[in-house]
């Protein structure tokens, strides 16, 4: 079920021009709702990381935002290539980022661990050849 607010942000591989716009728009919406600065910061960090992963690692996908009266849900769903070893990918410092991404300052292998740390609920599912889905939830009141 979609939230009272539902927005979708499609992202394409290596499209750095739009990278960061989804998380900026999400931040603006949370400010309009009056969500506290500390919750907003956590959503900002997680949404930025997940958005950039779509651009850097996926074959394209969609980030969506749903806001319910007491929670925020971020879902990232892509068309591949999938992550072969999830346990490895979740480790701090593990990265397969290419040269282009590294030149832009990405590839520290901190994105996924940071998402997990900042979200109140974190689920990841991935299948090689099919794609990756990440669901993160945040409680609005704390």
């Amino acid at each position: 079920m979609n939230g009272l607010i539902h927005s979708e942000y499609p992202r394409e591989t290596a499209d750095y021009t739009h990278a960061g716009e989804a998380s900026a728009d999400i931040k603006r919406k949370l400010k309009q709702l009056g969500v506290s600065a500390s919750v907003m910061r956590r959503v900002a960090v997680a949404s930025y990381e997940v958005e950039l992963n779509l651009v850097i690692h996926s074959d394209g996908g969609v980030l969506s935002l749903d806001v319910y009266p007491d929670s925020i849900l971020l879902v990232s769903k892509d068309r591949g290539p999938g992550i072969p070893d999830l346990e490895m990918a979740m480790k701090e410092g593990y990265s397969t980022a290419n040269e282009e991404a590294r030149a832009l300052g990405f590839g520290a292998g901190m994105g996924l661990p940071n998402m997990k740390r900042n979200a109140d609920g974190f689920e990841i599912e991935s299948e090689v050849g099919k794609g990756t889905e990440i669901r993160m939830s945040f409680n609005i009141n704390g």
Partner: peptide
């Protein structure tokens, strides 16, 4: 102190309805 002039309404449900309308 934060300046919350962007906030659309004190009631989050009303604020959500306003965001929908903006959309």
């Amino acid at each position: 102190e934060p300046n919350d002039t962007l906030k659309l309404d004190d009631n989050i449900i009303v604020a959500m309805q306003k965001i929908q309308r903006i959309h």
